[in-house]
């Protein structure tokens, strides 16, 4: 029991350290790498919570399948939607959205 609590405490400390790191990184200009770093750290934190706090690691494969298929479906939603946005105006017949007429 105590061992388990210690392990979770370790994860908690790690999560807080990652939070500190990502918050600190935001004040440096890293260009687009910054976005990758921030999302990477957030992804790592979420993974830690899911695998250890929510015990996906120790769960049945059925439960893991739930989490994985939700992510596959997110991928599907993003992938097919962006296949529209990234290809607007490829052949010149439809315009890139938005037609930039306004001042912004």
């Amino acid at each position: 029991m105590t061992w388990g609590v210690l392990r979770h405490a370790g994860v908690w400390i790690l999560l807080l350290l990652l939070l500190g790191a990502t918050a600190a990184s935001s004040s440096f200009d890293l260009g687009e790498n910054g976005a990758v770093l921030r999302l990477g750290i957030a992804g790592l934190q979420v993974l830690l919570i899911w695998l250890l706090f929510m015990d996906l690691l120790g769960s049945s494969s059925l439960v893991r399948l739930c989490a994985i298929s939700a992510f596959l479906w997110i991928l599907l939603l993003f992938g097919l939607t962006f296949s529209d946005y990234f290809t607007r105006g490829w052949n010149g017949t439809s315009t890139r959205y938005p037609a930039r007429t306004a001042t912004w």
Binding site: T22, S25, S27, D29, G34, L39, A42, I49, F53, M54
Partner: peptide, 21 residues
């Protein structure tokens, strides 16, 4: 835990970008 992990993603998307000037 799930609600917590949603916040982690929102934090990265909302608060962190665009701070380096």
């Amino acid at each position: 835990h799930f609600v917590d992990s949603v916040w982690i993603v929102l934090y990265a998307l909302i608060y962190l970008p665009g701070r380096s000037g």
